[in-house]
Design a protein around this nucleic acid. Structure first.
Lengths: 333, 333
DNA sequence: CAACGAGTTTTGAACGTTCATATGAACGAT
DNA sequence: ATCGTTCATATGAACGTTCAAAACTCGTTG
C-alpha cells in the first residue's frame, strides 16, 4: 500500500483507486516520526529567536512569520528556539542536529564577529543566513536585502514627487552592522548626486530619542520642500517628530522615507523601503533544501531588491493631517 | 545501553560509568524521530501564526518568543504554522496531529465566535488558549491576563503619583473582544471610584489616528494634572500625541498609562501595564503537558496578574523632555 | 506445454528507541 | 553438588515508513 502513495505509476489504476478510497475513509496521513526515521531527515529547519533583544529589530519577528508561511512550500516545518534556553549558543545548534530535531538552520541577525557561521561551517551543519556572512561571505549561502537599491529608490521617489533635496540620516559606520549602514548610505549618495538632489547627512543610533535629537540638527540645515531619507523606520519616526515639533507638515513641507517597511511605518503613514522578507524567506529555505538534497550551487549570496511602499509622508499635495497625529494647529513657525 | 539512560537505578555503577563515557565520547543523543515513533508522541506543540494581520497585535509576536523560551522547560518544541499555508483553518489542525507533527496546540488570539475551540474539543485534540474560550469557558483550558487588576493597578499608580483624576480611553464594547474591553474598563472604573479619581471616559478603535482624534476630545474635558488610563499602548500613544499637540508635557502635565507592556511603550517612555507573557506561556504549556500526561485538573481558566512598568509618562517631577520626542519648545498654550 | 517476460503485488528488512522478557552470573542454602 | 534467589545484562519485539527484492499472475513464444 505504500507503493500507491510513492510510486503511483507502477500500480494498477484499479488498485490505486481502491487504496485511495481506504486512505480517505480512514483519514490516513503518514507519520512524520516514522518518515523521519526512515529518511534520516527531520524535515525541519531551526531558527534562533533572540529573546534578549526582543523586538529590537523591527524585521526579525515579521521575518519569522514569512519563514513560517514559506516553509510548507519547501516541505519543511520550522522549529524556533531561543537564547538562554536548553540549547545555549553554538552547542545547542549541534545538539539539535544530533537529536535530528532539525536538519539545518536559518541564521537571522548575523553581524560582524558572529561566531555562528564559522562554527557551523566547521561542524558541517547546513545553514543559510539572512544578511551576509561577514567574515566568510564566499563560504556559505546567504540572502540579503539590496540596501543601496533601496535608498536609491527612495531618492528617485522623492525626486519624482518634487522634493528639492534628499538629506540622509543614517547609522554611524563603526557599528557591528557597518556594512549595512554603508550600503544604504551609498545608495542614497550615488543616486542623489546623479539627480543633483544630495542634501546634508548625519548619523544617529537606532534609538528614537537619539534620532529625534539628530533630526533636529539635520532640519536646521533644511527648508520646507526638502526631504530626508532614513536608514530605518525608527529613525524616520524621529525625523517626523522633530519636524512636527518645528511645525512642519510631514508630506507637504517635508518628505520622509524610512527603511524596513515595518509596522511602525504603516502605523504612522510613513513611506518606507520595504524589505522583501517573503522573498528572502523563500530564498533561504530554497538554499537550504538544495544543500540538503546535494543539488546546491556554489556557496554565495543573493541580493534581493526591496520595494518602496508610498505613504502620506511623501505626499506633497495632501493637506495631510489625517494620517499624522502630530501637527498641532497653529503651531507652525 | 538504553537502561543506562532510562533506568540508572538498576544498572551497576561501574557499567553506568562505562556507558556514560562512550556516550560522551561519541556525542550520542537520542533521535527525536525514533523516540517519537516509540512513544507515539511528537513532543511538539503547534502554534498558529496570524500571517494576515501581521503585527496587528502588539503582543502576539512577543508571546511567541516567550513560548519558545518556555518550551524546553516542558520538554517540547514548538512548530509554528500560518494561515494560508498548506494547513488551512481547522482541517490543518487535524492533519497536523494525524501526521503526528504535533501533539497539541496553543491557541492565541481567541475571540468570540472563534470556531477553533469548539472544533478542537469535538475532535478531541488537546489545546490551551491564551485568552478565555468565549463560547465554552468551562470546557477547555485557558489562561489570560487579569485585565481588571491591570487597569486597577494603573489607577493606583496614578493616584500614588499625585494625578488628580484618571480618565479612561478604551475600546467600544460591541467588538469581538468585548469581554477584554469590558474587563479592562471595569478595573479602571471600580478602583477609580474607590479612590475618588474617576474621570471621563471615551472609546476608540485600535488605531493610532482614531485614538489621537478621540484623545483630543477627551483632553477637552481634562486639565493639566490629570491622567489617562488606556486600553492599549497604541491608544496611549495617541493620547500622547494629542497632549503634545496641545503643548502639554507628558508626565508633568498629563499622566498616561498604556496596556500591554509592548515595545511601543518602551520606545516612547510610556508607563504600561505589562502582560505577564512569560507566565502565560509557561502556564499554557504546563496545562498542555498535563493534558497529554492525563494528569490534568478539571478544565478551566487561570487569570494571571500583570505588572505595572513605570516610565517617564507618569513622572510628574521630571522636567521630562528627554524621553518624549514630542513637545515642541514654546508650543505650549 | 514449458519457458520466458512484463506487469503487479507481497514480503521483509532497516531506521533508533524503549520496555518487557529472557538469559546469565554470583552466592548462600539445602 | 543442586537448587533457589537476587541482581545485572542481553535479547527481541514493536512503533510506521520506505524500498529493494521476491513472488505471483498472465499472456506470449519457442
Amino acid at each position: 500500500m505504500s507503493n500507491a502513495l510513492n510510486k503511483p505509476h507502477l500500480v494498477r489504476p484499479a488498485t490505486l483507486e481502491r487504496v485511495r478510497a481506504q486512505i480517505d475513509r480512514l483519514g490516513y496521513l503518514p507519520s512524520q516520526a516514522a518518515q523521519g526515521m526512515r529518511s534520516q531527515r527531520a524535515g525541519a529547519i531551526g531558527i534562533e529567536i533572540n529573546a534578549v533583544h526582543r523586538g529590537a529589530s523591527d524585521v526579525a519577528q515579521p521575518f519569522l512569520t514569512d519563514l513560517t508561511v514559506a516553509a510548507p512550500r519547501h516541505d519543511v516545518h520550522l522549529v524556533p528556539f531561543a537564547h538562554g534556553s536548553r540549547f545555549p549558543a553554538v552547542d545547542g545548534y549541534r545538539d539539535m542536529v544530533r537529536r535530528r530535531l532539525v536538519d539545518a538552520f536559518v541564521l537571522a541577525d548575523t553581524h560582524t564577529g558572529d561566531p555562528r557561521p564559522e562554527w557551523l561551517l566547521g561542524a558541517g551543519i547546513p545553514f543559510a543566513a539572512f544578511g551576509r556572512i561577514y567574515d566568510h561571505p564566499e563560504l556559505g549561502w546567504w540572502a540579503d536585502v539590496d540596501g543601496a537599491a533601496g535608498t536609491a529608490q527612495a531618492v528617485e521617489h522623492l525626486h519624482d514627487r518634487g522634493y528639492r533635496t534628499a538629506a540622509y540620516l543614517g547609522w554611524p559606520l563603526h557599528k557591528d552592522d557597518s556594512e549595512v549602514a554603508d550600503t544604504r548610505r551609498e545608495g542614497w549618495l550615488v543616486r542623489a548626486r546623479e539627480l543633483g538632489t544630495a542634501g546634508p547627512e548625519l548619523t544617529c543610533e537606532q534609538d528614537l530619542a537619539d534620532a529625534t535629537l539628530a533630526a533636529r540638527t539635520l532640519l536646521d540645515q533644511l527648508d520646507p520642500g526638502d526631504a530626508v531619507v532614513c536608514a530605518s523606520d525608527l529613525i524616520a519616526l524621529g525625523v517626523m517628530y522633530a519636524a512636527a515639533a518645528r511645525g512642519w507638515r510631514i508630506g507637504p513641507d517635508l518628505g520622509v522615507v524610512g527603511f524596513d517597511g515595518s509596522l511602525t511605518a504603516a502605523r504612522h503613514g510613513l513611506t518606507s523601503v520595504s524589505q522583501p522578507l517573503p522573498d528572502i524567506a523563500d530564498t533561504l529555505l530554497g538554499l537550504l533544501t538544495d544543500q540538503l538534497a546535494g543539488t546546491a550551487d556554489d556557496p554565495g549570496g543573493r541580493l534581493l531588491t526591496p520595494t518602496l511602499t508610498p505613504g502620506p509622508s511623501t505626499d506633497r499635495t495632501t493637506e495631510a493631517t489625517a494620517y499624522t497625529p502630530l501637527p498641532a494647529p497653529g503651531n507652525r513657525r
